[in-house]
Design a protein around this nucleic acid. Sequence first.
DNA 1: ATACATACC
DNA 2: TACTGGTATGTAT
Length: 684
Amino acid sequence: MTDSKHEEANEEHNVHVSSSNDVATSTSASALIVSATDKAGMEGIDRTKIDAIILRESGNSNFMKQQRKRDAAVDERIAKMKKRLDDHMQQNGGPQAWEDAERRMQPEIDRLIKKRKRLSTCVVVDMDAFYMSCELLSRPDLNDKPAVVGGGMILTSNYVARKYGVRSAMAGWIADKLVEELSNGKEKLVHVPSNFDLYTKKAHEVRSVLGEYDPKMRAYSLDEAYLDLEPYLSLRLGRGLKHEEVVAALSAAEQSTIDEEEEDEDIEGEKDDGDSKPSAENKDASLDYLSPDAALKATTTIVDEMRQKVFEATGGLTCSAGLANNFMLSKIASDLNKPNGQCIVGPTNKEILNFLRPMKVRKIGGIGRVTEKTLNAFGIKTVQELYDHRTLVQFIFAKQATANFLLQRSVGWSNSDLNSKDEEEESMGQKGISKERTFRAGRTWGEVNSKLEEIAVALSGAMLRKNLFAHTITLKVKLATFDVLSRAKSMARGVYIQSSQEMIPIVSKILSDLKKEHKGAFNVRLLGIRCSNFKEETDSRQKQLDAFLVKKPESIPPAPTAPDTVSFPKRSDVHDEDETNQTREQNLALSPYHQKTVGTSSPPVRRHVSSPRPSKATAAVSLPADEAVCPICSKVIPGDNDNLNRHVDACLNAGTVAKLVGESNKEVDQRPSKKRRVLEDFFA
DNA sequence: ATACATACC
DNA sequence: TACTGGTATGTAT
């Protein structure tokens, strides 16, 4: 629910929503409870007991009431969809349209199947119980007590806590109750406050290993990354290079790609013996000779090595991996042998379908609780059924994009190319930025308003750091009832804002209007502000300035937070039953590769991690590593990012320049590619 | 363009 | 005693 997704995202793939059996109409309270099926360690404690406690403790909370309300709304929508479908089929053209749709889909299906990547080189790496595992490195004593990371909301739990049904996304007080009751008061749940600096540091250790295998690796969160091993494989196997040589070659190739983009010139030279100058052309060709079987074996071994290196580089953190010929499949596979395991899905259509067909549709990334429920209501629970009822699906989901997405997934097709994703996302840039804050309901109106201002200042600071100017601002309010309201306001044409001074009057007005128009108590528990519709940046000179202003030289790419679950290094062999699901777990031996590529010019690894690149034609102008220039007052600010941020906030609060910025920004520039920009004037 | 929902980690 | 936060995108109007 709020998020069974948290669990699902982790290795608890046995998690289910208890309502899923009951097609279409469950609104019962139990429908809202998510619980774990018996994983190892659950013996002795009854799952129904866990469910009962959760229900008793939280069943009457405002939160749960809201959940039930939403659940009812979903049921209502499903009912409407059914009716619409019936009506459609009653019409004259109905049945005919059905057949037409069926016929139209077939070529698309064939096309997708033909398009599959030849080898299973797409890898999803997922850290095991990441936050908790990080903590356990320095707190081994917590291994035998029930412990979690997080207070009010649990981010991750250790193995002992999971025995009591404690899992991520659970409210802290419920978790406490579970442990207390189920241990008959003998145990008490330990809460470890989250320490994101630590997790970020560990994540970078992980990424520096993964980046050796694919410099284009994408980090989706602190604990999860996507890689394509094809270039690595073609050098290691096709060219017979050693790991270190491959790493050097990949990194050189990546570097030269970047330099090309940046219109720089030669870089190569002594990176490696002139031999290893790989790059795009030879990588596709060089694996052609490799049989799928041999490739599976080799890839499995290499990913095992890679995970071993992650273990070593992090001082003992384990991860799991999934391998397949696209990322949808790898993602599912990465979950199957958690913790500390991996799973490879063979590249043939037959293997893919055997792997996928029995899966619950919920396993598919992008299908959440609601979509699952909707599909279930139409008799679709597994991927097999999703495929069998593909025509029905076309009719249920009005939006073609959605129906198409489901069709693709039902035949096991998804993106397998990190680069294309790269371009898509990168060319589009960030779409919005927001800050929100939950607090205890029942504040005075004055307090609520000052919260709002705090949020505006924080958001403004973040926008300043990223040099973003927004055309639209949205206020989000969550009431004590958990009802969520939002109101957006767009500026006049060509007007963009960034400073908190500009935001505050707008959102304050929206807030008071909302309060007026809302019937019933207006007891606020959360406020959020979102800014979107950013001003386009098209001028490359401007971009250089932006890079100068915004980029602190080696600032680490910020990664969104992510929770996790279970822990437990049990490098055991695996539940590898069915023939399609080849789980290996093997050669623990190996890895003569311990030390790294010498001077390690591995910065390129980071480039692709998460933050939007300044983009082409922009060489980041460098500053001394521990200085930055305040874009407001132009002073050089020594110290780290925090220091800069503090200064910038102070500057903003001083209000002086903010006013200036605001003024000039209000000038109308009708064309998207207008050069004039405020800050440019400051620095030109 | 706006409101609200869904999904993801 | 009290169920997160940040971002993107879909759906409906």
